[in-house]
């Protein structure tokens, strides 16, 4: 798929944050990224995610990558 085409990856940050009683500000601080970048990631506007960021997110949310990402329409 060309990189500029629409993707169907859903980032379940909102749900995981709510389940763990965290705020997005706290998550951004724990992961070490800005709130702006977390918002870009949360809203599906990121082109890609680094393995290091994914690792930090999974550690902060105590989840697996599969819990964080899902394919819409499947």
């Amino acid at each position: 798929m060309p990189p500029d085409e629409e993707h169907r990856i859903r980032v379940n940050i909102d749900r995981l944050v709510a389940e763990r009683g965290m705020t997005l500000t706290q998550l951004a601080e724990r992961v070490g990224i800005t709130q702006a970048n977390l918002s870009v990631l949360k809203n599906g506007r990121a082109r890609a995610i680094r393995f290091s960021t994914l690792t930090a997110l999974c550690e902060a949310l105590s989840c697996a990558p599969g819990d964080l990402l899902s394919l819409e329409g499947s």
């Binding site: 506007r45 990121a46 082109r47 890609a48 680094r50 960021t53």
Partner: peptide, 8 residues
Amino acid sequence: RDELEGVI
């Protein structure tokens, strides 16, 4: 650079 700007 444009490509990397969207990488988080």
